[in-house]
Computed example of a mutant assay.
Amino acid sequence: MTDIHPDQRVAVLADSQNLYHSAQSVYSRNIDYSALLDKAVQDRRLVRAIAYVIRAESPEEERFFEALYDIGFETKIKDIKTFPDGTKKADWDVGMSLDAVTLASHVDVVVLCTGDGDFSRLCSHLRHEGVRVEAMSFESSTSEDLLESVDSFIDLGAREDTFLL
């Protein structure tokens, strides 16, 4: 696999739910999405940046969605589902994977901003297709399977002052 160089076309896919819960549980802080996007792109050519978010009807979420847009992220929003037993579920694993596979022929690098091990199979597929796969998340809450399946990993927890608000 190639290293980073300025001609690479990059797609950044951010699993906002995963990042939020990791940042909150470990640091009780929020992600600095501007710093996240800057580091993910690293002076390469950004093709698309997508943040996958969940609408949970909290008062500040519309401001958050607008802030993501202002930073440069396209937002894909899914409503949280509440089941009859009261449990709630909302995740973007399938949507992120489909977007990554669709974008693979248009980019050289996919940066997955998540620690979710469910994406390890996607990473193997993308790498088989000749796409460099990078991940960014908090190593303390990142799946070993994901770490083993990417070309490079950036631990957001190693640079709290950069990546946390």
Rank of each mutant, 00 (worst) to 15 (best):
V111R: 04
S137D: 04
V10R: 11
T2W: 04
V12G: 05
S34G: 15
I4M: 13
I80F: 06
Y33E: 03
V10T: 14
E66Y: 10
A23C: 11
L164R: 04
L46P: 06
F83T: 01
H21W: 12
S58G: 05
R29C: 08
L156R: 00
S152C: 08
P84W: 02
R55L: 12
A23M: 07
I71D: 05
K39L: 08
G86T: 04
D145T: 02
Q8A: 06
A14S: 12
H5R: 10
S105F: 07
V10G: 09
N18H: 07
I54L: 14
H128G: 04
L103E: 07
A40Q: 05
I154A: 06
E148F: 05
Q24R: 12
A51D: 13
V26E: 12
D3M: 12
S16C: 15
G72R: 10
L103S: 05
N30C: 09
G157Y: 01
C113P: 01
L126I: 00
V150N: 00
S25N: 13
Q8M: 13
F73T: 10
V150K: 00
L103Q: 07
T87Y: 00
P84V: 09
G130N: 01
D32V: 12
E60I: 11
Y27H: 15
T75R: 15
S28I: 01
A90T: 01
S97D: 01
D79V: 06
D155G: 02
D99Q: 11
W92M: 12
E60P: 06
P84R: 07
D116K: 04
A35P: 08
T75L: 12
I80N: 03
H106E: 14
H5M: 08
F138V: 13
D108W: 03
K76L: 15
D91W: 06
I4S: 15
H125P: 00
F153L: 02
S149K: 09
A100P: 04
E62T: 14
E60G: 13
I154D: 08
D38L: 09
S152V: 02
E74Y: 10
L19I: 15
G95K: 12
G157Q: 03
V131A: 00
V47M: 14
T162F: 02
R45D: 07
R159M: 11
D32Q: 09
L126H: 00
K81T: 13
L164C: 09
A67G: 09
V133M: 02
H128Y: 04
